[in-house]
Design a protein around this nucleic acid. Structure first.
Length: 878
RNA sequence: GGGAGUUUAGCUCAGCUGGUUCAGAGCAUCUGCCUUACAAGCAGAGGGUCACUGGUUCGAACCCAGUAACUCCCACCA
């Protein structure tokens, strides 16, 4: 098998992904091994892959591949979320394009369209994940509206209802007029927007011509006013106590009420109270027994109760009413004003506070154990800083509005009787039986008298069950899968959904399994562009992930994503990272080409033992570091350790040390060792760069591979004994080589010209054994150990040892002296600081003994060096 | 308004229990190289008052207090 000169990612990626699939390497079934489980945060079924998914899933894949290679039974469960609001919106839009209005469809008809649409476009994102190399067990793919998962939703609804934790009530909810549904508090995103503050005059009805002025950002709601409220302590308005005023334009009379809730120094100190359209006003209205006048339709247009501007959209009405007020002389002034406005997370429509009958889930009881898991450390949040946020939310948790006025989702299992009573039951038949038991029985109750609640539950009411439901933990609570895989190990997700999803999964885990759902939550950051803006479709600042894969290879993009993304920190994405990733796999490829090109001569018996032993130790040293970083979920650092090990230690040093001269053969032992090293390198690279490593793994260089002998299931190398002495020595040897190269650079000597090198050893290092390495990498023709200083040579010092390169014609005593003087000055300064410490009584009394010992050693070392330098300066002067 | 976090080289980030003259890495930059694995490369080099001000300490990037800037989360000021 010949190997191509350059690595071709696309071809290789497709080849190996199919191979992995075909040989079921992603598949997991319970066995005697330790499980390692991740459930994917299910992306919206309508979604397409964006940079956030790339980051998130790359991390998951690295973790899962590593676990697999560490002998665990790794199971990554993929799937999608039905995302009721988002999907329903898309389906409605699609129907509209076809000239179909949702209103004209029955529920079953609509759902048929929706399912068709889901089947057609639903899988896209999962296929995109495959391009990234995601090693999910695709046979386990679930959808939150699969029958079993929907059943679980209904069952848990009934369970919680029976516990008294689900109730129905009229509340002020966040109404999304575009989605025409209520949304939960968490789905409202507040943004500061520039608004106008309208000052509007209301006539007092006592016959005098006085008026009061209120300030509002929402003049279109004055028709829904129920009162004007002033602070009883406000001296300015004592005369208004117990008066009534007329709403402008419609001249409806409303009372002036008193409440300390009103801030005197904001606006005019007069507050219009509009219970139907503002949460605070609603509460104020409750307190003062005010009527609720709702002037808005579900779609945000004004209804007939508004009397004027009926049918107008709320924002159009706002503009028009401003004009009307102005014309009628009621508008005192308009000011620019910044305030917070809530937007729907799903549709981006401005949220309308609206009173309506909804289903709620009580949270306080469930929050307690869910908080404990995290506070006790049974569930770890990574990074830990999120614990505070989590606690704050859990301690102030509010009941969860779980009903949504949509069709796409799990329909609420509430069945209404003709008289408005209702029962909760899974099926109509069960509901019928329940209904017959009601205390106030209905005569002649017929099955068809029961009408199911039209609403569906919030999508999160299904996804909070995800870690259990994907293993059929509801349908069959004692099955082999759930017993084996649950609790799962790591969850990788965005901090944005810590409350939406993570917290609720913990609650559900405890409530329905009596156990936590996962042990570690790795919270990723937001992917931002160079300017720090969140990457989003609407800003157009997000590259298409698939284009990136096309351009840099999946391995390159994976490395690019991970190069700089510590947990919890936002990722400042820059394509140059992917470039760096590509350059990296290119480096690996070329190193491979080099080794592959070598011819072995079995008669050679001069293995590079030093190089081999050194790299062995170095590899274990790096592996120790890599493991430690993984243990702390420092993926970027683990990657960087690997990167440096491969690029610097292996390619730049080890391969250069052992590389035979052009067209010369290599000895058997060195060759075999190098192949072993390469194998280990492929293994540690694999979680980051699965494709190129698998490709190289199968090269004939490593001999015939059995069908199932793949890098993806290779076992990670183990940490072996580290020869610290050797590692230290080689660091010095590397420094010697660097200094030789530096000398060449500064004297403009070509690397091709061989040099002579002498060393006067003061350190006790045995340079004899490193001679050949120094000679090879420094291009030294003659290496000698001397007892005296060499005059007329360029010198440098490494550790305490003096090195000389005779260069009579090029030597410049003045420059050389200057250089040595600089070093001398540095050492003098250094000694001074050390002496200062050592002569400081308090330091000697307080510092730990090992610190003092270290200082003493520093002193001796520096003095030795100083002495040598001063001798050298003296000898130059001669 | 409340809470959390961040601030270290041009950029992205490390810096664990305060202890080498401690200031580090990768990228970028600069210099020199087409040295037969790799110019997607090789060999080198330069770059920082650790945001600011005080304090604690023998010793501070690290601990404490204050200041500033930025980010995120939570919160109903019309």
């Amino acid at each position: 098998m010949s190997i191509s000169k350059t690595y071709n990612p696309t071809e290789v990626e497709n080849k190996w992904y199919s191979y992995w699939l075909q040989h079921k390497f992603f598949k997991s079934v319970p066995d005697e091994r330790e499980p390692y489980t991740i459930v994917i945060p299910p992306p919206n079924v309508t979604g397409v892959l964006h940079m956030g998914h790339m980051l998130n899933n790359t991390i998951q894949d690295v973790l899962i591949r590593r676990a697999r290679m560490k002998g665990k039974n790794a199971c990554w469960v993929p799937g999608t979320d039905h995302a009721s609001i988002a999907t329903e919106a898309k389906v409605v839009a699609m129907l509209k394009e076809r000239g179909i209005n949702k209103k004209d469809l029955s529920r079953p008809e609509f759902l048929t369209y929706a399912w068709e649409w889901k089947e057609k476009y639903g899988g896209i994102i999962l296929d995109q994940l495959k391009k990234l190399g995601a090693s999910c067990d695709w046979d386990r793919t679930r959808f939150t509206m699969d029958d079993d998962l929907s059943d679980a939703v209904i069952d848990t609804f009934i369970h919680l209802y029976k516990k008294g934790w689900i109730y129905r009530g009229v509340r002020m909810v966040n109404w999304d007029p575009q989605g025409k549904t209520a949304v939960s508090d968490e789905e409202v995103i507040r943004k500061e927007v520039n608004q106008k503050l309208y000052y509007i005059k209301y006539k007092v009805s006592n016959g005098s011509s006085t008026h009061l002025t209120i300030a509002t950002t929402r003049p279109e709601t004055i028709m829904a006013d129920a009162a004007i409220c002033i602070n009883p302590n406000d001296e300015r308005y004592k005369h208004l106590h117990h008066q009534k005023v007329y709403i402008p334009l419609i001249d409806r009379e409303i009372p002036v009420i008193l409440d300390e809730y009103v801030t005197m120094d904001f606006g005019t100190g007069c507050l219009k109270v509009t219970p139907a359209h503002d949460l605070n006003d609603y509460e104020l209205g409750q307190k003062h027994h005010l009527p609720v006048i709702d002037i808005l339709n579900d779609d945000g247009t004004l209804n007939e109760k508004a009397q004027i501007l009926v049918g107008e959209d709320r924002f159009a009405a706002r503009k028009k009413i401003a004009t009307l007020l102005e014309e009628a002389g009621y508008l005192e002034k308009v000011e620019e004003y910044k305030s917070q406005v809530g937007f729907s997370e799903r549709t981006n429509a401005v949220i309308e506070p609206k009173l309506s009958m909804q289903w709620f889930c009580k949270m306080d009881e469930m929050a307690k154990p869910a908080l404990d898991y995290v506070l006790k450390g049974d569930i770890k949040l990574i990074p830990e800083k999120f614990i505070n946020t989590y606690r704050h939310w859990m301690e102030n948790v509010k009941d969860w509005c779980i009903s949504r006025q949509l069709w796409w989702g799990q329909q609420i299992p509430a069945w209404y009787l003709l008289d408005g009573q209702y029962v909760i039951a899974k099926t109509k038949e069960e509901a019928f039986e329940e209904a017959k038991k009601l205390s106030s029985k209905i005569e002649n109750l017929q099955l068809d008298d029961l009408k199911q609640d039209e609403d569906v539950v919030d999508t999160w009411f299904s996804s909070w069950l995800w870690p259990i439901s994907v293993f059929d933990g509801f349908k069959d609570p004692n099955n082999a899968d759930i017993n084996y895989y649950y609790p799962t190990n790591d969850l990788v997700t965005a901090p944005e959904i810590l409350f939406f999803w993570v917290a609720r999964m913990i609650m559900a885990g405890h409530e329905f399994r009596g156990e936590l759902p996962f042990r570690n939550v790795y919270l990723t950051g937001i992917v931002r562009d160079k300017l720090g803006r969140k990457m989003s479709k609407s800003l157009g600042n997000s590259p298409d992930p698939l284009d990136l894969i096309e351009k840099y290879g999946a391995d390159g993009v994976r490395v690019g994503m991970l190069l700089s993304s510590p947990a919890g920190n936002d990722l400042m994405f820059d394509e140059s990272h992917c470039l760096q990733g590509r350059n990296f796999f290119n480096k690996v490829w070329n190193a491979f080409l080099l080794v592959k090109g070598w011819k072995v001569d079995d008669t050679l018996a001069n293995p590079n033992n030093i190089a081999i032993q050194w790299f062995k130790s170095r590899f274990s040293e790096a592996l120790t570091q890599i493991e430690a970083n993984f243990a702390q979920y420092r993926l970027s650092e683990a990657l960087m350790d690997t990167y440096k090990l491969v690029w610097d230690d292996f390619c730049a040093w080890y391969l250069e040390m052992i590389k035979p001269a052009y067209e010369h053969p290599i000895d058997r032992e060195t060759y075999e060792q190098t192949l072993l090293f390469f194998t280990d390198i492929l293994k540690i690279l694999h979680p980051f760069m699965p494709f190129i490593t698998e490709e190289l793994w199968h090269d004939e260089l490593f001999g015939e591979r059995a069908e199932m002998d793949c890098c993806i299931v290779a076992q990670m190398p183990k940490i072996e004994q580290i020869n610290t002495q050797l590692l230290n020595d080689v660091e010095i040897v590397k420094q010697v080589i660097t200094d030789i190269r530096n000398t060449r650079n500064s004297k403009q000597i070509s690397p091709k010209d061989a040099l002579e090198l002498s060393v006067k050893i003061n350190s006790g290092i045995d340079y004899n054994q490193y001679q050949s390495i120094i000679a090879k990498l420094g291009n030294i023709s003659q290496f000698s150990i001397v007892n005296d200083k060499v005059s007329g040579a360029v010198s440098f010092m490494v550790s305490k040892d003096e090195f000389y390169i005779p260069l009579t014609e090029n030597i410049d005593p003045v420059a050389e002296t200057e250089r040595l003087n600089k070093e001398r000055a540095y050492l003098l300064g250094f000694l001074k600081s050390v002496d200062a410490k050592l002569s400081n009584e308090r330091f000697m009394n307080n510092a730990k003994p090992e610190i003092i010992e270290n200082e003493l050693k520093k002193k001796v070392d520096a003095e030795t060096k100083l002495k040598i330098i001063e001798e050298n300066i003296a000898s130059l002067a001669n």
